[in-house]
């Protein structure tokens, strides 16, 4: 056993400096296209057509990207004709535009979670990537325990329901059961493009258009999958310890 102690000590500290400072290591985030890009009408329309999830809107000479729908397919950045600027950050979490349990940012936002929060993760038809990224939050790089975030096995002890996946038919009832089993005050955080908008899977006869069809969502974390740091940012926003992404009001 001493072998593991020594080996563990020799490993040293790898934990990220986030949220004190920004993490700058390579490969931590796939980035997202710039939210607002002025461009000519012909390119703009082409851009709208090339986006498979309808994340890009073109209005008055500006291409706007809805982060909730972007799935990092890179189709908008492949052609030199209309390449969108990519932003490499990860602080994408935002308050849900409607249906939230709490008036966002207002005084009614629960203060109980500032120091510590227990998370129940529910897989609602996720492709595995978001789930794997949530799992990475426990690894020494991100180590969310240091911030007072813990995964619980039962929703009875959970403060926040972290939902990944587009909510398909078979997981809908378990998801609702988990939400019902949680004590109040409770939050719901939808993680990943599928959970926000159904992603590439919805809507269909077994899949809806995200968690908001079923539950009131409070926090949204865009990305497909959102990298661990983005999810961490989402948790910090939920706890009221970080501001949400500026200028995002859901649309």
């Amino acid at each position: 056993m001493s072998r593991w102690v020594i080996s563990g000590l020799r490993q040293g500290v790898v934990t990220t400096c986030y949220p004190t400072r920004m993490e700058t290591a390579k490969g931590t985030s796939p980035g997202l296209p710039a939210r607002l890009t002025p461009m000519a009408d012909e390119f703009g329309q082409e851009l709208v057509d090339v986006c498979p999830t309808g994340a890009i809107h073109f209005e008055r000479g500006e291409a706007r990207v809805d982060y909730g729908r972007c799935i990092h397919c890179f189709r908008c950045s492949r052609s030199a004709r209309y390449v969108l600027e990519w932003e490499s950050g990860f602080e994408w979490a935002r308050f849900a535009s409607d249906g939230s349990n709490f008036v966002k940012g207002a005084a009614s936002w629960p203060k109980a979670f500032r120091k510590s929060m227990h998370i129940r993760v529910v897989d609602a038809g996720d492709c595995g990537a978001c789930l794997n990224e949530v799992k990475q939050l426990n690894n020494p790089y991100y180590n969310m325990h240091r911030l007072g975030f813990f995964i619980t096995p039962t929703p009875r002890k959970a403060d926040i329901l972290l939902v990944v996946g587009p909510v398909n038919d078979h997981t809908r009832l378990p998801l609702q059961a988990a939400y019902d089993a949680m004590p109040t005050p409770k939050l719901v955080m939808a993680v990943g493009a599928c959970a926000l908008s159904g992603g590439v899977f919805g809507p269909s006869f077994v899949t809806g258009t995200g968690v908001k069809d079923v539950l009131p969502v409070d926090i949204e974390v865009p990305g497909s999958p959102p990298p661990p740091l983005a999810i961490l940012h989402g948790l910090l926003v939920a706890a009221g310890r970080k501001p949400p992404m500026p200028g995002q009001d859901g649309r």
């Binding site: 490993q11 490969g27 799935i71 990092h72 397919c73 890179f74 990475q136 690894n139 790089y141 999958p225």
Partner: peptide, 26 residues
Amino acid sequence: ASQAAILEEDLLRLSGDLTGHRYLFG
């Protein structure tokens, strides 16, 4: 488990750095 997790994250970062996406999408 932690050491294996570090390796997994290293490989995810390597993928992200090389191809632009940690899960090799697109």
